[in-house]
């Protein structure tokens, strides 16, 4: 579905270097990235701001022309066959709507149908399905400018799927959404991927998105692919500690217990790191036996922790 082979993208940036003089520097945004995504995959594409995520997405969708290397999406060269590709993929930018601001959502979707030349009968069936799954019914006839962020996002998703694309590319689709909207969007994406077989590539800063949705994770940092594989494997490869947060009845010196070490204290609250090989239940039991505990919670290493470690340590991409 997606083939990316040794792709680079650099930008020319003009800086003021004197009163009138400008210097031009070449800034590399993506540096020799290669990966493939097969049909039906659900891939999370992660990385800190400025790592090259959006640049990659824009090259995949034909907005940007790669400086070098080869990109193929659905068998097409995105930058040269942009409009042909647009008919076969759906793209949603979480920060930006593709809907017409002053038109009711329904009209926007009809216009999209015309642009993509979808048959009326096909469209009606599809619209009914999308309306039900994305719960659009309540605001189909509201002008887009009056929609809430969550509603607009679902509207954008519907617009990207009117032509039943084989690949859906999402750039931060859950940014700024509340818990309920997020859940609706996630459930919808899961269904789309499993039942319709739509390939999905998603960038996000939301750990929940990745943990609930993506079977495969790619991490990009400083324009290079730092990791490509499954999420559990990323966890294991990084040897990340789980964190046990213990609230004691009163402040105490750091707890000493086998299989864990205190990494932080704040009054009566202490943070204990348990290595992946350790037994969390045994640590909890030992702590509770020796101290008066008010509350206790265990935190799995979040993706952000993992990624922070990845950037620091540099684990080779397995796969």
């Amino acid at each position: 579905m997606i083939e990316v082979d040794e792709v680079c993208k650099s930008f020319t940036v003009r800086r003021r270097s004197g009163r009138l003089r400008r210097s031009r520097t070449l800034v590399g945004a993506v540096d020799r990235i290669s990966f493939t995504v097969a049909a039906g995959e659900f891939v999370g594409y992660l990385g800190p701001n400025g790592a090259g995520k959006s640049t990659t997405i824009k090259m995949l969708t034909g907005i940007l022309t790669p400086t070098s290397g080869r990109v193929r999406v659905s068998g097409l060269d995105p930058s040269r066959q942009r409009t042909a590709l647009a008919r076969r993929i759906g793209v949603v930018f979480g920060q930006r709507t593709t809907l017409w601001w002053d038109l009711p959502l329904r009209d926007s979707l009809t216009l999209v149908r015309h642009l993509y030349r979808v048959e009326r009968s096909t469209h009606q069936a599809r619209l009914a399905e999308l309306t039900e799954l994305l719960e659009l019914g309540a605001f189909l006839d509201t002008p887009v400018r009056q929609l809430s962020l969550g509603q607009r996002m679902r509207g954008d998703l519907a617009a990207a799927l009117v032509h039943d694309p084989e690949l859906l590319v999402l750039d931060e689709p859950t940014i700024g959404l509340d818990v309920i909207s997020k859940a609706t969007v996630r459930a919808f994406l899961t269904r789309l991927n499993t039942e319709r077989g739509t390939t999905i590539l998603l960038t996000t800063h939301d750990l929940g998105d990745v943990e609930r949705l993506c079977r495969r994770v790619m991490v990009i940092d400083h324009g290079r692919l730092a990791y490509d594989g499954s999420l559990p494997r990323l966890r294991a490869a990084l040897d990340a500690d789980r964190i046990l947060i213990v609230d004691l009845a009163r402040a105490a010196p750091p707890i000493e217990v086998d299989g864990a070490r205190v990494v932080r204290t704040d009054g009566p609250r202490q943070w204990l790191a348990i290595p992946p090989s350790g037994n969390a239940a045994a640590v909890v039991a030992a702590v509770a036996a020796r101290h008066e505990v008010e509350d206790i919670s265990l935190r799995e290493p979040g993706i952000e922790d993992l990624i922070t470690r990845l950037y620091g340590g540099g684990v080779p991409a397995d796969r």
Partner: peptide, 13 residues
């Protein structure tokens, strides 16, 4: 404003 990006995503010039 970056809105050219969204225009480029549609199958129309």
């Amino acid at each position: 404003h970056g809105t050219l990006d969204t225009l480029l995503l549609r199958p129309v010039g």
